[in-house]
Design a protein around this nucleic acid. Sequence first.
RNA 1: UGCGGGAUAGCUCAGGCGGAAAGAGCAGCGGUCUCAUAAACCGAAGGUCGCGGGUUCAAAUCCCGCUCUCGCAACCA
Length: 743
Amino acid sequence: MKSFYVTTPIYYANSLPHFGHLYTTVVADCLKRHYGQRGFETCFLTGTDEHGLNIQRTAARLGRTPQEHVDYVVVEGKKFFAAFWLDEAHGGYDIWMRTSEAFHYEGAQEFWRRVAAQPTPKGRESIFKGFYEGWFCAPCGTYKTQDELSKPAGESDPPRCLIHELPVDRVSEESYFFRLSDYDEALLRLYEERPELVVPDARRNEVKSFVRGGLQDISISRLKSSVAWGIPVPGDPDHTIYIWFDALLNYITALGFGSERRRREVGAKVFEKFWPGVHLIGKDILRQHAVLWPAMLLAAGVEQPRAVVAHGMWLDPQGRKVSKTLGNMIDIELVRRHTSADVVRYVLLREKAFWQDGRLGYEIIFDRANSDLASGLGNLVSRTLTMIRRYFDGVVPSPDIPEGRRLAAKRAGVDSDALALSSSLELARDQFVQGVEGYEFNHALEALWAMIARVDKFISDVKPWELAKSEEQRETLGAVLYRSAETIRWLAVLLHPFMPESSLAIARQLGLADELEGSDPSQLKWGGLKQGTRIGEVAPLFPRIDKVKVMAEIEKELAEKEKGEQAGKSRNEQQAAPSGAHATQAAVPGAPTATDVKSAPPVQGATEAQAPPVTNTQAAQTQASAAQPEGVASFITIEDFAKVEMRVGEVLTAERVPKSDKLLRFTVDLGEAEPRQILAGIAEYYEPEKLVGRKVVVVSNLKPRKLRGFESQGMVLAASVGDEGRPVLATFTEDVPNGARLK
RNA sequence: UGCGGGAUAGCUCAGGCGGAAAGAGCAGCGGUCUCAUAAACCGAAGGUCGCGGGUUCAAAUCCCGCUCUCGCAACCA
């Protein structure tokens, strides 16, 4: 039997899942059900990534153990998904994977051993010990990511910890590395040989050009003293396996890779049956899945995935990224309560081209639901069944028009057979199946909706209510209604993976047994609906949404929620908010992450594991600012200040740095023997020519640093204004000699 | 700055190996109908196919240049 294994990323259990995660999961669910209908043996995995510093810290902040915290997130997450028919009970995922499970520890360790036992394609050891270097905050006792650090005040100043407002140290610790750099050629060969490994093409090209640019070895462990919440490195329990080298493995450990325990649990052959699977991911975690993961599998000698499929992201109605700070995230659970799970599922799959980014907002959802579902599908079902009820007493009439009535039928514009309809239905069916196979769900659905329009038109053209007035057209009328009802049956079968509940409701209204799971959509044949079938009770499938009214209600509810959260915040009880730059972000770019509060781009890519995980910066900030006077960093002494040497300088020359859109290169006279070369990232806001001759303030004792190949021997001071941090140069209104020190 | 996309009706997008009067859905306008969830059906309206050149009998479609925009990278001390 053919098998189909589909996975979503496992979501980072730091925070509760949201609408972005829902999207990927709905897609996976839809695929699983579709292939299931077609007779594939299916397995659908989703779950949670439960290790790491983030979770360790969030749990600590909430006064829980990490295990308690992830248990909580899992329970809530399952509830959230269940409301959209994604759980086992509703025929959704088969496995909710959790990386904190014992079998995963075994599998991950086994994988590590296999990698360590094999040399790289270039003949070196795949895992080696080195030193991980990062910013370390002593009071916190941990490494910090860019997101957890304030922008450094001056050149070669260390950044500061956002919690303690203190400079952090550049520290290194022993760490294991995976020699990713040795896999570049093997990977490039793989992309050539198996182009379907990374789809769509645009993403594969992106990946290829990234790999061609050379790969860096990545740190795959942390000292247990830094990150305790994780899987011990085999044979070296002082180290913990780090992030991706743990998380990615879930896709195979869930099936029993490397763990006897798990194989007993799920069946010994499950891995062999399902393994090369399809990974659905958001384009934001493409690197990890299209570079690191294949390299890891090469290293361990495990078969590559069938495909890594990267979808686009949801944006707000204005096309902006969705983020908590902008407050433009949709509360999808709220939408569901005002509509239904199926409506949400349909809109998610219909509204956006899978590969591309798409926009979503409350009104977009309601408009789509009203036009496609209420006016389209729902109305067609309603008018058809109502007529069967009214004219045929609720019994499906015969599809046949007897010889003697064919002329009459012809006069009414009805062919004696349904060939025209049935053949275009077959075409639509094939387009639909092709669309689903190609992840073009919007096209798949469009093909079906073209059929709805066609039948609507057919009904309008032949006017069954007129036919009903003439006994001579009795059979014609029956045939017309049969054709409409049979089309609806097809729709119910085809749409079942998209709208499990509504499609069943349609089937029941048609008087069919609930046999949709077993009906192979690709094998649909005209005439499956039996004459004489007694139809069920007819009720609106998709009640029209009063947009104005519902919007008003939603706004009210959101406002109330906001209030609740404010209250929660002060008690420091709010659910863990921002997620890390991790698998969590699968579907919504920088969703609730502190990352997009400002500047610092999310650390991404195969090198991500080199940076410690992101944590709850917002909460951290809240705490920190509570302890400090508003707007004031922690105090420094006069001695601290004396360390900074600031001098007046005059810009002698200024020019753009080639191949850089932000950097200007200055030579500045500081009253010294030689003018200094200083770089500044203000090219977007200042014309270099206009700066020549200008007096500026320069931090003159910063450690020199190279930027774009030029050494910067100081830093020009500027105010940072507005959200985008527009620089405004500091200057003097009176004349000042070059080199004068600011005290 | 490098690489790769994109720029087509009010909105979201199709088309695009050169050859139809340039399409669809939604919104909007006019009409028909009453089986239906104020639904459906019909009709009209709506576009310099980013800008400028070129190739050709013929260009939204091919070539060159430009502008804007998005993604990835680099970069922002």
